Simulated scan of single mutants.
Amino acid sequence: MAIKYLSTTALSKEIQLPAKEVFKLLADKGLVKREKDNWILTDEGKAKGGVVKSHPQYGSYIAWCEDFKNDTIFESLENDKNLLTSTALGNHFGISKFRINPILSELGLVQKGVKGWTVTPLGKLMGGKQFEYDKTGVPYVCWNPIILTKKSIISSLKEVQGQSSTEEKNESNHSYVGFREKFEAKHRSADGHYVRSRAEMLIDNWLYMSEIVHAYERKLPIEEDVYCDFYLPVGKVYIEFWGLENDPKYVARKQDKIKIYEKYGFNLIELSDEDIQNLDDILPKKLLKFGIQAY
């Protein structure tokens, strides 16, 4: 029986996936390579059953034996069929398609490019996958449905809509209760925030007077229950003030938090007691490293 061959384009139709994604996967697996404007079949591709055929009208093209469509390399692309677009993600949470990407950006999961949106390292950890539109090349991000089970994402998106219940907040704050009870937020800053120390009040006031939008005690958008001291949406920067360096438990907690910031690649500014006396000199320099101009 003669072997039936499929062109790569015909193969993509058989498995119901975009030809561009199929070519990219074949290239990633080393079965084909790009030379100038042409796709070239490699020795690895030949070993997989690929051949070069010729058409009187369209010229040479790469073809594959029909059974190749069942190869395990296409399993990952099959999973892509179940990915959620940002619009579908927004619909799930009742958020407009025009707001969902800016919200995901504020959470540090995507970032806006010259055109379209690109996934961040944190976004990849949360199940984001990068794509681009065939005709325009504009990038966009789709999401593994597992993102719908991420407590940190669910909580953050609900907070945006003002839906977080007291019960949810208490549950997520459980590991932080001891610290909060010990250091009550009783220092009122100029913008109305109640903070837990005079040093934090000075930091808050400095940010407010510098017209830098900030949040106090923002939960990091991760599964671990970790809260920053301050969060700056512009630049996606977190600020931590370390004020109890003589307390062994505090120092241990500090090291654990630093490891979390490093794990997720978050932008972190660290301030000490000495820095508080020189915020006008220290903070502008630290902020500038993340593209934030204070004055």
Score class of each variant (00 low, 15 high):
186 K>P: 04
187 H>E: 10
187 H>S: 07
188 R>P: 09
188 R>H: 08
188 R>L: 13
188 R>I: 13
188 R>V: 11
188 R>Q: 13
189 S>F: 12
189 S>E: 15
190 A>D: 13
191 D>E: 11
192 G>S: 12
193 H>N: 13
194 Y>C: 08
194 Y>W: 15
195 V>L: 06
196 R>P: 09
196 R>V: 09
197 S>T: 05
197 S>A: 05
197 S>I: 03
197 S>N: 08
197 S>V: 07
197 S>H: 06
198 R>S: 05
198 R>F: 04
198 R>G: 04
200 E>N: 12
200 E>I: 12
200 E>M: 12
200 E>V: 11
200 E>L: 14
200 E>W: 10
201 M>P: 01
202 L>V: 03
202 L>Q: 11
203 I>L: 07
203 I>T: 09
204 D>L: 05
204 D>S: 07
205 N>Y: 02
205 N>G: 05
205 N>T: 08
205 N>S: 04
206 W>A: 05
206 W>F: 14
206 W>M: 02
206 W>T: 04
207 L>S: 03
207 L>I: 03
207 L>H: 00
208 Y>L: 05
208 Y>H: 15
209 M>H: 00
209 M>P: 00
210 S>P: 01
210 S>F: 01
211 E>A: 06
212 I>R: 02
212 I>E: 02
213 V>G: 00
213 V>Q: 02
213 V>E: 00
213 V>D: 04
215 A>V: 03
215 A>S: 01
216 Y>L: 13
216 Y>V: 15
218 R>Q: 13
218 R>T: 08
218 R>I: 08
219 K>H: 07
219 K>W: 14
219 K>Y: 09
219 K>R: 15
219 K>I: 13
219 K>T: 09
219 K>N: 08
220 L>Q: 14
221 P>N: 02
222 I>E: 03
223 E>T: 12
